[in-house]
C-alpha cells in the first residue's frame, strides 16, 4: 500500500522555486531517506507533507488523504520530529509526553500506558521527571523523537534527527530508529550519508527542488558507478550541475 504520494508537488517563495513538480511514491513500512545539499528542498518537502505549509501547485496524499484538502485528518496520523528540538522547556519530560497525548484526546488510561511504553522503549525513565529544558542535547533529541512517536503515528517525519550529536549518541538513535521502523513509515532527512546508508530502504536525492536520483543504496552506487554512497552522492550532484 502507498503511504505517501506526491503529484507535481511544487512550492515557490516569490522568485525561488524550493520544490519543483515532485512526483514520488513511498510505500507503507518503508524508511525513506531524503538527501541533498543545504537549500535542496528537503525541509520544504517535510513541511508540505506535514501540513506546515501549503503547496503552490500539485498535491500530496498521505494514506490517501490530501494535504491540501484534508489537513485535519492528515494531522491525526502524523508524527513530526523537527530539526530543532521542540519541547516545552519548563515542563518535565513526562508532562511533555502527556501534553501530546491530551492533544490527541487519549483517555487517561491510554495516556499512562503510552507514556510508560515510550519511556521504556526509548529508555527515558531516568529523565522522565526532569525539566525538558534542563536536559543535555542528546536527551533532548531523544525526547524530541519520543514526542513524535507518542501519538502512534502511521507516518513519521524525522528532520535531521541526529544533527549535532556525538558518535555514540548518534548510534544510539540509529538503534532507536530501527526499532520504530516496525510500526511506522519513516521519512528521514539527513546530511550524514552513513546514516542514510545504515538506515534507509530507499534514498531520494534532491537538488534545487528537483528529485535527481531515487533508489536503494546499491542502485545509487551502481548508477553513479561508485564504491560508496558518499562518492555516489557527490557524483550524481556534479552530474546534475553539468547538465544545468
Amino acid at each position: 500500500m502507498t503511504a505517501i504520494q506526491t503529484i507535481n508537488l511544487s512550492k515557490k517563495y516569490k522568485d525561488l522555486t524550493a520544490l519543483d513538480s515532485l512526483n514520488l511514491k513511498i510505500e507503507e513500512g518503508e524508511l525513506f531517506a531524503l538527501l541533498g545539499m543545504n537549500g535542496a528542498g528537503k525541509t520544504t518537502l517535510i513541511k508540505l507533507l506535514s501540513c506546515l505549509s501549503s503547496p503552490s501547485s500539485g498535491d500530496a496524499f498521505i494514506n490517501g488523504l490530501s494535504v491540501t484538502h484534508e489537513r485535519k485528518n492528515v494531522k491525526r496520523i502524523l508524527g513530526v520530529s523537527p530539526q530543532e528540538t521542540a519541547l516545552a522547556p519548563n515542563l518535565s519530560v513526562q508532562e511533555n509526553l502527556c501534553l501530546l497525548c491530551d492533544i490527541h484526546k487519549f483517555s487517561k488510561e491510554k495516556t499512562n500506558a503510552k507514556v510508560s511504553e515510550i519511556a521504556e522503549k526509548l529508555k527515558l525513565n531516568d529523565v522522565l521527571h526532569r525539566k525538558a529544558g534542563k536536559l543535555s542535547g542528546g536527551w533532548q533529541r531523544k525526547v524530541n523523537i519520543a514526542l513524535a512517536l507518542i501519538a502512534e503515528p502511521k507516518i513519521l517525519f524525522l528532520d535531521e534527527p541526529t544533527l549535532g550529536l556525538d558518535v555514540t549518541a548518534r548510534h544510539d538513535l540509529w538503534d532507536l530508529i530501527r526499532t520504530i521502523k516496525k510500526d511506522s513509515t519513516i521519512i528521514l532527512t539527513t546530511h550524514y550519508l552513513e546514516e542514510a546508508e545504515s538506515l534507509a530502504d530507499r534514498i531520494g536525492i534532491l537538488k534545487n527542488g528537483k528529485l535527481i536520483a531515487l533508489g536503494t543504496t546499491q542502485e545509487l552506487k551502481e548508477k553513479a558507478n561508485a564504491q560508496n554512497l558518499e562518492t555516489a552522492f557527490v557524483s550524481l550532484i556534479r552530474e546534475e550541475e553539468e547538465l544545468c
Binding site: S50, C51, L52, K72, K75, R76, L78, V80, P82, Q83, E84, T85, A86, L87, A88, P89, L100, I103, H104, L147, A148, A151
Partner: peptide, 16 residues
Amino acid sequence: KDRESAFLQRLYTTPL
C-alpha cells in the same frame, strides 16, 4: 520562545 524553539511548529502538525 515557542516559535524560536520550533515547539509551535511541532504543535501545528497536530490536530490543534
